[in-house]
């Protein structure tokens, strides 16, 4: 009897594997969770974009209020698609958006904002190799971080913010943090 069980072992192992494979079909292997969730925002001190009139973006600007940090760049195709929605969020006034102009010539970044509109409260220039963005664990643009009043990162969204993402995910988190 014992030896008969041994012959069952391969099929049992296979069934176990099948469970993982099935689960795997509904996982995204490319989604990398951030390790910075619930950690304080990294220490950054970014210069302003030329002619924008703010003083750049520092860590302390991310404290005292809930904010949305958005990674963009004038070279980034998907950012153009996202941009109108950021403009809409700004118009609604539900949360201040802070921009990080990643791996970009600050002049090009400024020109891009002039062309497509400027939804940001503050923008910091983070030219290559993008130390500040690497400190945020950025893997691509656009990416957005929800930062709470204490300056801690509470949520990271990879990719474009659209109506669905905003209404179903980001806004509820922000509303909760603003209470």
């Amino acid at each position: 009897m014992k030896s008969r069980l041994a012959y069952l072992l391969p099929v049992l192992i296979f069934v176990g594997l099948l469970g993982f494979f099935f689960k795997g079909l509904f996982l995204d292997p490319k989604a990398i969770p951030s390790v910075l969730i619930d950690k304080p925002v990294p220490n950054i001190d970014l210069a302003a974009l030329p002619g924008r009139g703010d003083t750049g973006l520092k860590s302390e600007h991310l404290k005292g209020q809930v904010s949305l940090v958005n990674i963009f760049g004038s070279w980034c195709v998907a950012c153009v698609a996202e941009h109108p929605y950021l403009m809409k969020i700004k118009a609604e006034g539900s949360v201040p958006i802070m921009g990080i102009d990643w791996r970009d010539d600050p002049k090009a970044g400024m020109a891009w904002l002039q062309k497509h509109g400027d939804p940001y409260e503050r923008v910091g220039a983070d030219p290559a190799p993008g130390h500040a963005s690497v400190d945020f664990g950025v893997t691509g643009a656009p990416e957005s971080f929800v930062v709470d009043r204490d300056g801690r990162i509470r949520y990271k969204h990879v990719g474009i913010i659209d109506d669905r993402v905003w209404k179903q995910t980001l806004l509820p988190i922000i509303k909760e943090l603003q209470k």
Partner: peptide, 25 residues
């Protein structure tokens, strides 16, 4: 497609390993 191949894998590998468990002893 993944689901379909998984079903195939289940039928081919799972079925044959089951047959193995029954007949090999």
């Amino acid at each position: 497609r993944g689901l379909f191949i998984l079903a195939m894998l289940t039928a081919v590998a799972g079925g044959s390993l089951m047959l193995y468990a029954i007949r090999a002893p």
